Structures are given as C-alpha cells and as structure tokens.
Simulated assay, not measured.
Amino acid sequence: MSLRTIQDCLQSREHHQSLAIVICNAPLSGLEGLVKKIWTQCELVVCADGGSNRLYDSMKEDRNKYVPHVICGDLDSIRKEVVQFYKEKGSDVVQVDDQDTTDLTKCFNHITHLNNTGIVKVDNIVVMNAASWGRFDQIIGNINSLFLIAAPPILLSDDSLVTLLPPGQHHIPVNTGLEEGHCGLIPIAGAVQSVTTSGLKWNLNKDAMSFGTLISTSNLILPGAKEVTVETTGTLLWTMSHKLSNL
C-alpha cells in the first residue's frame, strides 16, 4: 500500500480498493484537512477510544458532518460528552476490556471482524496521527499493532508515513506528487539476511540489515523515480516523508 490509494480518494477517482481510516488519541494537527477531504470516500471511519476526543475537538462547528461509524477501545479516555454526542449521531460504540491489546489493535480486530462477517469491505487501512511524535512507548505500540493484522496498514503523521513490508518483493509507487523524498528501511523485527532495492539514492544490494550494524535511514527517493522496489528476506519497516499536510 502507498500514497496512491490516498491520492485516488482525494481526486475522487474510481478505485477498486476500499479504504478505512482510524483516528488515534494524538493531535490531528496537520491532518484535519486530509481527514475532511478523504472522509466521504472511506468505507469506514473508526475512532480509537480517545481519538474521538481529538476528532470532536478538531472539527468544532463541523462536528455534525464528521461522525465516525465506530468508536472502539477500552473507553477509558473518551470524555462523557463526546461519547454521548456521537451515540446520538449514530456511532456504534464498541467497548473491549482487554488490557493486553492497545486500542489500535482493538480497532484492527473489529475492522477484521466486520470484514469477515461481510458487514463492510475494507482493503486498506490508514491510521491518522499514529506516528506523530509524543510518547515513544505509544508509537512503538502502534508499530507492534501492524504485525497483528494480515495486510499492514499505513500509520500517518503530519509529515511521514510508516508501514511494514513482509518478506518478498514490493513495488512502491512514488510518483503521486505527494512524496517529499526522504525515506528509510528499518529491520524492526530483527536481523534480515538480504535486502535489495532500486529507486533510492543509496540502494541496497543483497545487504544484511540489523540494529547494531546496517539500517537505511535518511535515504532519498531518486528524483523522477516512478517506483521503489524492495526485495527482502525478512520484515522491514518502510517510512517516507509526504506532503499531505499541505492539503
């Protein structure tokens, strides 16, 4: 998954894959415009517990227009007036009392349930404000959640995205006009025996990667490149800068 899916939604193109967005409990600063632009093109909008407060506070006079389909989590963060407002507007409130999973994982599990039961059809998930700088333990928890769903979603901040690349070959479109240029490949799940890339300023050629030896941060997408290809024997975290906040 890449910025191509988001671009298709923004430009109201007919796209064959449906999109869900999840709003986390972190500031939406820089992403409010994107949320508004992409809202009507989404199959499903889910707030992760206190993410409901963030949506409520950000939308202000537009609250009636931007009502999430689902609020999901252990509900220890959502304010009473917020849950009451969205309940009255038709949001489905799903409480999951499980302290071994994050609210984001709870949302992923619920989206998977809705998919498996045919209630919705979601091919891709974009998580708003999940990679924004804040509590580092929460960022790591959000990254861990990517490992717990079959098709890894995108985590967005106001200036970058994060997703997982499982073992195999990957072709990442980078010619949407939304890319900033900076990128990185990180062996987040442990040592990877071999990584080969194209489309980067500093490509890898069957290189081994691990923390304490080689990781690829502060890399750059080649100007004019249409795609970045990655062939990896292990799971990598892919991150790249974007211009979505300019919207």
Rank of each mutant, 00 (worst) to 15 (best):
106 K>G: 02
106 K>E: 08
107 C>L: 09
107 C>K: 04
107 C>G: 09
107 C>M: 09
108 F>D: 00
108 F>E: 01
109 N>M: 14
109 N>Q: 14
109 N>E: 09
110 H>T: 11
110 H>K: 14
111 I>M: 04
111 I>S: 03
111 I>C: 07
111 I>A: 00
111 I>L: 05
111 I>W: 02
112 T>M: 01
112 T>Y: 02
112 T>N: 05
112 T>A: 05
112 T>W: 00
113 H>W: 13
113 H>Y: 14
113 H>I: 10
113 H>V: 12
113 H>Q: 15
114 L>M: 12
114 L>S: 01
114 L>G: 01
114 L>I: 10
116 N>V: 13
117 T>V: 11
117 T>H: 02
117 T>M: 00
118 G>L: 10
118 G>V: 11
118 G>H: 11
118 G>Y: 13
119 I>D: 00
119 I>R: 13
120 V>C: 00
121 K>V: 09
122 V>Q: 05
122 V>E: 01
122 V>F: 05
122 V>T: 11
123 D>Y: 06
124 N>S: 12
124 N>E: 13
125 I>G: 03
125 I>V: 14
125 I>N: 04
125 I>H: 05
126 V>H: 10
126 V>E: 10
126 V>R: 08
127 V>I: 12
127 V>A: 04
127 V>E: 02
127 V>Y: 01
128 M>D: 05
128 M>K: 01
128 M>E: 07
128 M>I: 15
129 N>K: 00
131 A>G: 06
131 A>M: 12
131 A>R: 00
131 A>P: 04
132 S>E: 14
132 S>R: 03
132 S>H: 08
132 S>A: 15
132 S>N: 10
133 W>P: 09
133 W>R: 13
133 W>I: 11
133 W>V: 11
134 G>F: 06
134 G>V: 03
135 R>W: 01
135 R>H: 07
135 R>C: 04
136 F>N: 05
137 D>W: 06
137 D>N: 10
138 Q>C: 11
138 Q>F: 07
138 Q>D: 13
138 Q>I: 07
139 I>H: 03
139 I>S: 03
139 I>E: 01
139 I>N: 01
139 I>M: 13
140 I>M: 15
140 I>A: 13
141 G>D: 13
141 G>C: 10
141 G>S: 14
141 G>N: 10
141 G>T: 09
142 N>T: 05
142 N>I: 06
142 N>V: 04
143 I>D: 04
143 I>L: 15
143 I>M: 15
144 N>P: 06
144 N>Q: 15
144 N>S: 13
144 N>E: 12
145 S>V: 09
145 S>T: 10
145 S>L: 11
145 S>I: 11
145 S>A: 15
146 L>P: 02
147 F>L: 15
147 F>P: 02
147 F>H: 10
148 L>W: 06
148 L>D: 07
148 L>H: 09
148 L>G: 02
148 L>K: 15
148 L>A: 13
